[in-house]
Computed example of a mutant assay.
Amino acid sequence: MEFALSEEQQMMVETAKKIGAQFGLDYWRELDARKAFPAEIWQAICDAGLCGAALPEKYGGSGLGMLDLAVIVEALAEGGGGSTLGQLFMVNPIFGGVSISKFGSESQRKAWLPKIISGEMHCCMALTEPNAGSNSLEISTFANVDGDGWRLNGQKIWITAVPSSHKMLVVARTTKLDQVKRRTHGISMFIIDTDREGVSHNEIDKLGTHTMPASAVFFDNVRVQPDELLGTLDHGWNELLDVLNTERIVTTAGLVGAGRLAITQAVRYTTDRKVFGGKPIGSYQGLQFPLAQAYAELECACLMNYRAATYCDQGVPYGSDANMAKLIAAQAAADATERSMQAMGGMGYSKEFHVERLWRDARLFRFAPVAEEMVLNFIATHDLGMPKSY
């Protein structure tokens, strides 16, 4: 396995680092305080060609792969955005770009991919429901046949970046659960306008990730046009899983960058801070060991993520690797931000030193976009062959 980055990848990382430095920690602190979407940095990312790294050249992308996208997100996250950078890539080049490039019609690709890649179009995905949670096969949002299209009714929750989006990838049932032989049958994906008549949404007040709002979304007899079906009618489940596994890769990359950034802040502070006879507090093993442990775990998650991304690019099954990488990255980032705050004492709790935001934001990913308990369930049954518990 090749570990060294290619010259092209190194150039992309340098570009990402420059953008990350341009929109550094102060930029993100100010946006967090205002709960404002990071539109300026996202446009800079698109202008630099980084949004479309893994999307086809035919539509304005670079035609590279998920490994390239992972190293880009890591570098951007480490520059100041933290784990939120993964969410930016999740909603646009993944939920929008990957789903359309892999499963869209040629007319859908031509109409939408160039706009996503340029930053003109923003996306979101509506999957999770109040009464289904992680059990996505139990979703009840339903698309009834209406002439040559459908009428969509139902409710979603914890949907990221709805207010800034133009298009929404909606996962719905098109055949009732009690009418199918397999629970995975009867699920379809649609891409609709977020401002479509009958679509409404309310923002959820939450602990962190303030620059990426989460919303409850309601569909009240929403008209869906025939050319807004994405992929295969009634057979969208496996197509959806392909999108979600790539989501894991950018999520993990953002967490790795966030953890590294927090540790960097702690190392800088504890090297400068001198007490107890003038020695830097960073010289004490009680502060060194937790940070070193978190760093080691982050680097392991990073390598597992690279393997998942490489397998994805090669067309080899990568779901287990993507899930394991996300599991370890979320735990390691939580430890890195927590231990960095602890090492900095009271100043780690202050907004002046930024780690508190990294801590608040990273905490989300212990249970999102998939809870660590569900990842462990998957590993136990899929990789270890143990009996299913649910």
Rank of each mutant, 00 (worst) to 15 (best):
L327M: 10
G104W: 02
C123N: 10
T15W: 06
L255A: 04
K181P: 03
T232Q: 11
D321G: 00
Y284W: 08
R173L: 04
G385M: 12
C46H: 09
H210C: 02
F289W: 11
C123I: 03
G97F: 02
H210G: 03
R273H: 15
C302I: 12
V73N: 03
E120A: 12
Y295N: 09
M11F: 04
D220I: 06
L244I: 14
R357F: 03
V375F: 00
D148L: 14
M341I: 03
V370S: 03
F142E: 05
V98D: 00
V91P: 00
Q155H: 07
L298F: 07
M189H: 04
P387A: 15
K17R: 14
L67M: 12
V91R: 10
E356Q: 07
A39V: 15
G348L: 04
E297H: 07
A143D: 01
V73H: 03
Q314N: 14
E352L: 08
G154I: 01
E297I: 01
Q43A: 13
G259H: 05
E338A: 15
G348T: 07
W150F: 15
G147H: 13
V250D: 06
Y295A: 06
E14Y: 00
A126E: 06
G52S: 08
C124D: 02
L364S: 04
A48W: 14
Y295L: 08
E373N: 09
M168Y: 12
I139Y: 03
V316F: 01
P290G: 06
Q265L: 15
